[in-house]
Amino acid sequence: MKNEFKDHVWDERDPNPWLALYLDQSTPLPDAVKAAWLRDCSGASRQFFLPAIRPLARLSMIVIQALKIFLPKRWAHSMLLHRLLAFSMNHFVSPEANWLIMRHFHLGSQVLQFVAANAPTKVGTTPLTPTQIDDVKDELFLRHDLNLFNFVIRLNKALRENGQQLVAVPEPDFSMIHDPDLRLEDMPRGRLNLLDLQSAIEIYTPVYQLLLTDNDFWRASNSLQLDETIAIYCAKILASPEHLVLLNNKHPMVPLSTLYAAYRLVLHGLSTEMLHSLLMRMASGEAPIPARELAGIQQAA
């Protein structure tokens, strides 16, 4: 895939903001990922469609929450939800957005495997490694959320039972950290595959809320606030007291309104990419990352 940012002509009287973000190296992201992310952000869909759909999506979430008062507590259609998600990703979501979504399952699994492999006690993981969009139909999004909470519970139960804590590892095991075998070129490229990542997530969130139980939806929303928790796990293993990513989804014990779940989900995806990129650098034997790059910065929502 051609990287248009590398060939962009710089006009000092009209500098391109996306070029500035691409060239900036203050955030740890691979060039291919950064280019895909910025290409998706700079498209017409995000500029014109997102401002219109966001308030409608949030209003629909309020209506759905009221509607669920009258629905059975266990009312849910998870299989239908994931079939709808797979269909829309195949036919309407941009190649860049689909690529980033699919990467996220791999990266999240690898980060949890890294923590498990370097924990002082044995902890099992259940990696999710989808190879095609239709794999989403196997309740992939729901399983992703369940995996995260189950891992935190499994890890800390084991640590408590053995009177242990995560500690610095002189030579961490990075064997599970690698670039996923997913190609941007293989993502669907139909005439209607135009929807950017943020707009897609804004649309998906109320559908997610409608077709899952309240318990499943709230758990999924609250899982976003474990970004800081996982970053702290990695910081302890790597003997770095600083946070490893640009964090926004914190503090873990202060749940935020589900109305902002879509925006926070985008930040969650970006922070996962950054943490994985840092681990990739260390795995490749690069020089230690400067402290300023490791410093956590809490962005205003």
Score class of each variant (00 low, 15 high):
Glu4Ala: 06
Phe5Asp: 04
Phe5Tyr: 15
Val9Gln: 08
Trp10Thr: 14
Gln25Gly: 11
Leu29Thr: 00
Leu29Val: 05
Pro30Asp: 07
Pro30His: 04
Ala32Ile: 15
Val33Tyr: 07
Gly43Lys: 01
Ala44Tyr: 09
Arg46Lys: 11
Phe48Trp: 15
Leu50Met: 08
Leu50Pro: 00
Pro55Ile: 15
Ser60Tyr: 03
Phe70Ser: 08
Lys73Thr: 12
Ala76Gln: 15
Ser78Asp: 02
Ser78Lys: 01
Met89Thr: 03
Ser94Met: 09
Ala97Gln: 01
Ile101Met: 08
Leu107Val: 06
Gln110Ala: 08
Val111Asn: 00
Gln113Arg: 11
Phe114Arg: 01
Ala119Val: 08
Ala119Met: 08
Pro120Met: 10
Val123Thr: 13
Pro130Cys: 10
Asp135Ser: 09
Asp138Tyr: 05
Glu139Gln: 15
Leu142Cys: 09
Leu146Asn: 11
Asn147Trp: 08
Asn150Met: 14
Ile153Ser: 10
Asn156Ser: 11
Lys157Pro: 03
Gly163Met: 13
Leu166Ile: 06
Pro170Arg: 07
Pro172Arg: 02
Phe174Tyr: 15
Asp186Trp: 03
Asp186His: 09
Pro188Ala: 15
Gly190Asn: 12
Leu194Ile: 15
Leu194His: 07
Leu195Phe: 09
Asp196Arg: 03
Gln198Asn: 13
Ile201Ala: 02
Val207Asp: 02
Tyr208Asn: 11
Gln209Tyr: 13
Thr213Arg: 05
Asp214His: 13
Asp214Trp: 09
Asp214Val: 09
Phe217Thr: 04
Trp218Lys: 15
Ile232Gln: 02
Tyr233Lys: 00
Ile237Cys: 02
Ala239Asn: 14
Ser240Asp: 14
Ser240Arg: 09
Ser240Ala: 11
Val245His: 01
Leu247Trp: 01
Asn248Tyr: 07
Pro255Thr: 12
Leu256Ser: 12
Thr258Pro: 00
Ala261Pro: 00
Val266Phe: 10
His268Ala: 07
Leu270Met: 12
Ser271Gly: 12
Met282Pro: 04
Ala287Arg: 13
Ala291His: 11
Ala300Gln: 12
Ala301Asp: 10
